Amino acid sequence: MEFPTAGKHCAHSTCNRLDFLPLQCKCGRVFCSDHFRSHCEQCEQSKYLKEDELKTIDNVLVCSHPGCKERSIVPLICERCKRHYCIKHRHLSECQAKDAETIRQEKEKYAAPVRVFNEAKAAVDLQVETTLNEAKKKSKTREMANKVQLMKIKSKATGSKAIPTADRLYFNVTYADRTAPVFVSSHWSLGRAIDAISQEMKLQNNNHKANEKKLKLFKKGDERCVVSDNFSINLKQLLEERVIIDGDCLIIDYVEN
């Protein structure tokens, strides 16, 4: 028994096979399963198919860009890496691995502005420090210079957070070529303050050991002058006697026992 109206003939020029489950292209032409894919690769109306349509076709090309799931039956092969990319991610300049020199140049591109900023900031900080030091030498501007310096130190100082804010004394302490803003308690003895400062600056402290070099605090100036040789003296007393002031610049260093 024949079914003359069942199925359709493949539209391919060399086929014309009667197919009972034909596949119809968006252009309206019908093909057997053997010739449908080859036709779609050439047909302008079938280059961009919907997701559901693509899933019904074998060997669909997926974009090689990380995270991209764009599908296509039309190959867009990169001449350099020989991989398929969708139109959005087909940037030939990005498929090659970067050599060491290219990576170095890219790092320098981003590092240069940071370096310039840090150099400019260091120059400004040095100028401010010089201006403050000059101002301190003049009686009319000394008090204002100390206030400005104290505000600078407070914004960066480190110390024990257990110290109440009202009891904190701030110092800009220098050791060798390092300077660190720190705070201690006004109720502490000089010895305890030196212990805390050495801990903040990560200095070896042998003040409690016999026959070892001791850490002492010095006033920063034209002539280095020790704050006090009496480690048990209270910082409040040193403040009242104007030996030190809140926001002072001090030097910490080792001396022979």
Rank of each mutant, 00 (worst) to 15 (best):
S72M: 03
I163F: 06
Q204F: 03
S139N: 12
V114S: 14
R83E: 05
A145L: 03
T158D: 10
F20H: 02
D253S: 14
T131H: 09
H91S: 02
L203W: 07
T130M: 15
T14Q: 06
G221H: 09
A180Q: 10
L61K: 15
L23V: 07
E106Y: 05
P181F: 07
D222G: 08
R71L: 07
F171G: 12
R104Q: 06
E101V: 08
Q127P: 08
Y85V: 05
S72Q: 04
V30P: 07
N234V: 01
V60M: 05
K140H: 10
R83I: 02
L49E: 00
D229H: 15
K88P: 00
D19I: 03
F218L: 02
P181T: 10
C10M: 01
R17F: 08
R115P: 01
K213Q: 15
V60C: 08
E41Y: 04
N16T: 07
Y110L: 14
L76Q: 07
T130Y: 15
Y175H: 14
V128I: 15
P66Y: 03
P164F: 09
L54W: 00
Q237I: 07
A120G: 03
C81N: 04
M144T: 15
G247H: 10
K137S: 06
R17G: 10
I251K: 04
N59H: 13
E223F: 10
I233D: 07
D52V: 10
T130W: 09
L23K: 13
H39C: 11
K69V: 01
E256C: 14
N234P: 02
P113S: 10
C43A: 11
L92F: 03
A210H: 13
Q127D: 13
N211E: 13
A123I: 06
N16M: 11
E94L: 03
E143F: 11
C81W: 01
V227G: 06
P4R: 09
C63Y: 06
K213A: 13
E143K: 15
V255K: 14
C43Q: 07
S228D: 13
T5G: 11
Q96M: 02
D52R: 05
I233P: 03
S38C: 09
E241F: 08
Q149L: 04
K138A: 05
Q42S: 15
C40Y: 01
A145K: 05
K154D: 02
L190Q: 00
N206H: 04
H84S: 03
C32N: 14
A210G: 07
T141M: 10
N59P: 05
